[in-house]
Amino acid sequence: MNKVTFSEDLCKGCGLCASVCPKKIIALDREKLNKKGYHPAGITDQSKCIACAMCATICPDVVIKVEKE
């Protein structure tokens, strides 16, 4: 399975990753705050991830690492 990891504490909750994900499987975690006090972005359904890395490409804070199986 493709793996997308977020360095959660670098995230500023800008939401750009969610806006470009073709599979719409990224969302800000409204229940949680990271060290900076932002709602960190995260994957909602890892199984649908096609490892296109569009999320990582648009992320201004290099939060996202993408691995293809």
Partner: peptide, 28 residues
């Protein structure tokens, strides 16, 4: 197989830029 990761020439430190500021993309 890593498809996307932080480039080595980019220091492993958080940016001070505002949320969503694309300076960070250009740095990368």
């Amino acid at each position: 197989m890593v498809v996307f990761d932080r480039p080595k020439s980019l220091s492993p430190v958080p940016f001070h830029y505002c949320p969503g500021c694309t300076h960070g993309i250009v740095h990368r």
